[in-house]
Amino acid sequence: MGNPAPSTAARARRASWLTLKAREAMEAWLFVSPTVAGFLIFFAGPLVAVVWYSLTEWNLLTQQMKYVGLANFRDALFENPDFWHVVRNSAVFAVGLVPFNMMLALTLALGLSGRFPGVIFFRTVFFAPVVTSAAAWAIVWKFLLQGESGFVNQLLATVGIAGPNWLREPDWAMAAVIFTRVIKMVGLNMILYIAALQAIPRDYEEAARLEGATNWQVFRWITWPLLGPTTLVIMVITTIGSFKVFDHIYLMTGGGPENGTLVLAFYIYEQGFKFFNVGYASALALIMFAIVMVLTVVQLAIRRRDT
C-alpha cells in the first residue's frame, strides 16, 4: 500500500465518464461475456428446447413434428418395458462402478501416498489408462474378453478355469464393462486422494500414535474424516460420470447382449439418432437430467448433514 497514488489527472479522466464501480462492472461483463453467451446459446437455450421437444412426436427423417403433451413421458414411465430395464441397468452400472472405483482409488492412494522406491513407477502405471483414449481402451478390452479364444479366457484356462463368454452373457457383460471402465478411470481418483492424503499434516497421526492408536483407528478417526471433502468431490464426479458412460458401451457391447448393458445415455442416443424419435429421446434426456440432479443434491445434502 506504499505505492504512490495514481495521478489525479488519470483519476479525474476516469471519473469524468464513468464511476469506478460502473467501469469495473462493465469490464467484468466483457470478461464473462464469451462464457455467458456460450452458456445461453449452447446450454440454456438447448435446455429449454429439450423441454419443448419432449412434448412432441418428432421424426428426424420425415421432419414431421406434432405436439403430444406428456405422451412421451407416459410412454417411457408406464408403457415401454425397455425404459425401466434401462434405468435399472444405469443404476446397476452406477452402484457397481462408484463404490468399486472409490475403494480401489483409496486403497491405491493409501499404498502410494508415501515415499518408497518404485512409488513413482506405480503411480505412473495406475494412471496410464487415464491418458489412453477411451475408444482405444474399449476396443482392446473387447478383444481380450472374446469367448474361448480371448486372451483372458486362455489365461484362465491355463489354471483350469473355464471363463464365461464375457461379452455375450448379460450379467458378465455388465461386470466387464464396469471393470474396464473402473480400470480406465480409477487413476484419476487415486491421484486426487493422494493429493488429499499428502495435505494432511503428519502431526495429527503422530499424536494419535503416541496415544497408542492402531493403523485402523488412525484411518477411521483421523484420515477418513479429513478426506471428507475430497471423497465428496470424487463421489459426485464419479456418479455423474457413470451416467454419462457412452463410448465403452458403444464399442464393447452395443447395449447388448439381451439389452443387458443398455444404459440411459446409450438409449437416448439410440432413440434419437438411430430410430429418429426426437421427442421420445428428449423426454428421456430430461428424465436423465432429473435423475442426475436428484442424486447430486442428495449427495451434497448428506454431506452437509454429516459435517
Binding site: K244, I268, L286
Partner: peptide, 10 residues
C-alpha cells in the same frame, strides 16, 4: 451437473 447427452439433441 448436466451430462452432454441431455442437450445433444437441441
Amino acid at each position: 451437473m448436466v451430462p452432454e447427452e441431455v442437450t445433444i439433441i437441441p
